[in-house]
Amino acid sequence: MGKRVLVIEDEPNIIEAIKFFLSRDGWEVFTHSNGHDALEAVDRRAPDLLILDVMLPGRSGYEILRELRAQERWAKLPVLILTARGQTKDREMAAAAGASRFMTKPFSNTDILEAVRELAEA
């Protein structure tokens, strides 16, 4: 059984695409599509890696990330922030919230794949 990755993203097509190439790389992919109960989803799925969108219905990705980092259990969880907003300001906010990686949409599938691999090995 491969490692578990949770993708929190509200755009179904993007979820589908990520699920496609990550599962082919041997990941067990779970998805969640809103911010409201994102923390519960993390607790339930207990992923080895989290891919997190920022503009989510209900709560922002940064908010979710900050609360995750506050929990000892998820303090070291590798988290890849994936957002359509790529300004410096957003990058800084991601870092401040405790993101392990920051990538902007649209992305290259191989880049995501490499980033996920690196985060998993680290």
């Binding site: 097509n13 993007i14 902007t104 992305f107």
Partner: peptide, 11 residues
């Protein structure tokens, strides 16, 4: 704009 483009590129 980025959101549909992301899907288009990914697929």
């Amino acid at each position: 704009l980025r959101t549909p483009m992301t899907s288009i590129r990914a697929f």
